[in-house]
C-alpha cells in the first residue's frame, strides 16, 4: 500500500474512534448540565443529577435487582459453560461438531427471536415472567461465550498436567478440581465479568422475560419513552465507568498467559 492509502486508513481509524466516543462523551457531559433540558447550549455544570440518582431509592433497588440477576446468571453460565468446554475440548466422541453447534447456537440467534422463544418456553414450563425467567434467559445467552473462552484456555493447557495428576492417583473429578480448574480460573473470572456485563446490559431478554420489576436497561428504556432526562445521563455515566473498568480487568485476565 502506498503512503497515501496508509494515511487515509489511519484517518479512518481515528474517525472511527471519534464516532465511538463522541456520543458517549456527550452523554456524560449532559449528565453534568445544570438544566433539565438535554441539548446545547450548556450554561453551567452541576453534580445535582448524581445526587438525585443516589437518593433515588427506586433506582437503587433496580440496580440491586439487575445485580442479583447478573451474579446468578453468571454463576450458572460459568458452571454449564465450563462443563461444556471440558466436554468439547477433552472428550473424543462422534457428533462433536453438532454438540458444539448446539451449545453455541444462542450466540448467533437474533436477539428478538431468542427473547420471544424463551418467553414462550418459560410460559409452557410454568415459569412466570420475573427474576427466574430473566436469570435463565441470560444464562442461555452467556453459556456459549463461557464455553468458547474455556475451550480456548483448555486448548493451551498441556495434556501432561492432567495425565500427571492421574498418574499420581487423582481420578477425573479430583484432577479437574485440583489441576484444571486452577488453570482455567483467570480465564473464567474474565469470562464471568463479561457475562455480568452482558447480563447487566441486556435489554431484549430482560424486557420480554421480566415481570413488573424492571432491570436497569428496561428501566432506562421506560424512562426514555417519556423523554430524555439528565438523570438518565447520570445513571448511564456511572454504568459506563463501571463497565469500562470491569471490562479492562476482564480483558487482562482472559489474555493472561
Amino acid at each position: 500500500m502506498t503512503r497515501h492509502t496508509r494515511l487515509i486508513m489511519q484517518m479512518v481509524y481515528w474517525a472511527f474512534v471519534l464516532y465511538l466516543f463522541i456520543p458517549l462523551s456527550l452523554m456524560v457531559l449532559m449528565g453534568f448540565k445544570d438544566s433539565k433540558f438535554i441539548g446545547f447550549p450548556i450554561k453551567s455544570l452541576t453534580l445535582h443529577w448524581y445526587k438525585v440518582v443516589i437518593q433515588d431509592l427506586e433506582l437503587m433497588s433496580v440496580f440491586a435487582y439487575s445485580f442479583t440477576i447478573a451474579i446468578s446468571s453468571t454463576v450458572l453460565a460459568i458452571i454449564i459453560g465450563t462443563w461444556a468446554a471440558m466436554l468439547l475440548s477433552q472428550a473424543k466422541f462422534k457428533g462433536k461438531i453438532i454438540v458444539f453447534a448446539l451449545i453455541t447456537l444462542p450466540a448467533v440467534l437474533p436477539g428478538i427471536i431468542s427473547a420471544i422463544a424463551l418467553r414462550i418456553y418459560s410460559q409452557t414450563l410454568g415459569i412466570e415472567p420475573g427474576m427466574t425467567a430473566v436469570i435463565l434467559g441470560h444464562t442461555v445467552h452467556n453459556v456459549p461465550f463461557v464455553t468458547l473462552v474455556g475451550m480456548a484456555r483448555l486448548n493451551s493447557q498441556p495434556m501432561s498436567h492432567v495425565e500427571a495428576a492421574q498418574d499420581l492417583g487423582a481420578d477425573n473429578v479430583i484432577s479437574f478440581f485440583r489441576i484444571t480448574l486452577p488453570y482455567l480460573t483467570p480465564a473464567l473470572v474474565g469470562a464471568g465479568i463479561f457475562c455480568m456485563l452482558t447480563s447487566f446490559d441486556d435489554f431484549v431478554r430482560s424486557f420480554f422475560l421480566g415481570g413488573y420489576e424492571p432491570t436497569l436497561p428496561v428501566y432506562i428504556f421506560s424512562q426514555l419513552r417519556t423523554g430524555m432526562s439528565p438523570e438518565i445521563n447520570a445513571i448511564s455515566s456511572v454504568v459506563l465507568v463501571i463497565t469500562a473498568v470491569m471490562g479492562l480487568a476482564a480483558e487482562r485476565l482472559m489474555r493472561r498467559k
Binding site: 498441556p158 501432561s160 498436567h161 495425565e163 500427571a164 492421574q166 498418574d167 492417583g169 487423582a170 481420578d171
Partner: peptide, 14 residues
C-alpha cells in the same frame, strides 16, 4: 493410571 502403582516423569515435567 490413577489406580496403577506406576509413576511417570513427563518430558515437559508437567
Amino acid at each position: 493410571p490413577n489406580r496403577r502403582n506406576v509413576n511417570m516423569v513427563f518430558q515437559d515435567y508437567a
